[in-house]
Simulated scan of single mutants.
Amino acid sequence: MSLKALDPQDWIEIDDQFVKYLSQKDTLLKTRHSEVFASLPGTAASQKEVLELLLDHLLKRFPQHYRRHDQRIEAIATHQVWHISDFESAPLDLAGRLVQEDLLLMERSRQGYRLVAASLCFPLRWRLREKLGCPLTQIHSPVPGYSEKLAHPVDSVFNRLKSNHPVWRLNWSIVESPELFFPPENAKPGWETTINCQNAGDKMFLRIERQTLRRLATSGDILFTVRTYVHPLRVLEDNPQMADSLAEIIQHMPVEMQEYKNILPIRQVLLGYLGSIVETGAIANN
């Protein structure tokens, strides 16, 4: 899983895309609320714990970005002001509006940890409503080998996680669009036929998820955050070593995982493009 210890001070990330992300979340929550927010009954107390933890962190860590006025919280850069009392029945809804991360709440059950609430504005090829209430094994059923190889280690991490020792990891995908909100229906059939080594840098996108896991001290539930970054693949032209590493990963990736990550249809063009970056970098260094 490549998990690393996370300094709680670095839990949430804010960058120059802050206004764009929050504005897009606001639009999605106004126009497609049932698709990007959902919660099961009986989870309000745990959701409130998330909101209180997040508010405390944001006001201390990013005082230049947030102000609190009694029961109102303001995102200074976007001029958005929310009344906390308006979200008593769904505190996680407000929490998700405050940050660039998506927030997913996992509760321990007889079947293992299950997804009980989420503010998920930036999914990649999955739908929140189809996963709500499902345990981890079912959520990850499309992942090749998850049940056989990953289910036990993941469950072990969740069971051992301490509230004062959060962890983080990175995940990556190559996608055909820079869209942050990317449910299955946004896929572009046949896009791979338009890709060649000359346009790959602009027509393919590197989508990176910075994921964190943090146990809530009171409820014992686990908050899973996902911060999504999307860049044109040409960003690798400035880092031949990273391009070389990615090419090596793809070359050794099992076919089943290539299919899951939608790499297989673009594999040859992708490797050709990455190889050209490495070759250009080697020539420049000679």
Rank of each mutant, 00 (worst) to 15 (best):
G201E: 09
S177H: 06
A187T: 15
R207W: 11
R215D: 12
N186H: 13
F181G: 07
T212R: 05
S177W: 00
Y229T: 02
M242S: 12
A200I: 05
D244T: 04
R210M: 00
S173G: 15
I174N: 03
P184V: 12
A243C: 03
P189H: 07
E248V: 03
N164L: 10
N239G: 13
R207T: 13
R169N: 06
N171P: 03
N186C: 05
F181H: 15
A200C: 02
L180Q: 14
R160W: 01
V230M: 07
D202W: 08
P240A: 04
F205H: 12
I250M: 08
Q198V: 09
N199I: 09
T212E: 06
V235A: 03
K162C: 01
E237M: 01
L246M: 11
E185R: 06
Y229R: 02
P183L: 02
A200V: 01
I249A: 15
E185S: 10
D244V: 05
N239F: 08
R234L: 01
L180N: 10
V230A: 06
L233M: 12
T228A: 00
N199T: 12
L236C: 13
Q251I: 08
K203R: 11
H231K: 15
T218R: 09
N186T: 08
A200E: 04
I174T: 07
G190K: 15
V167K: 09
F158T: 14
T225F: 03
I249N: 09
R234T: 08
L180G: 12
W168T: 08
P178F: 07
P240K: 07
D244Y: 03
T212I: 11
P240R: 06
S219M: 01
L180H: 15
L246W: 13
S245R: 10
R227C: 13
L233A: 05
L223A: 02
L170H: 00
A187G: 15
T218V: 12
L170R: 00
F182M: 12
S173E: 15
H165E: 04
E248L: 13
L213T: 05
N186I: 02
E237W: 02
R227F: 09
F205P: 11
D221M: 03
F182N: 07
T228Q: 00
R227Y: 08
D244R: 06
L170M: 01
P166L: 00
E185V: 06
M204K: 03
E176K: 06
L206C: 09
S219W: 02
E179D: 15
W191S: 13
S173C: 15
P184E: 10
F182K: 05
R160F: 00
G201C: 10
F181K: 09
V175Y: 00
N171M: 01
G201L: 04
D221V: 02
Q251M: 13
T212W: 02
L223W: 02
L246S: 13
S163W: 10
P184N: 06
E192G: 05
M242A: 14
W168K: 10
H252L: 11
P232Y: 04
E176R: 14
Q251L: 07
M204A: 01
E176D: 11
K203Q: 14
C197E: 13
L216N: 00
R214I: 09
A217I: 08
H165W: 01
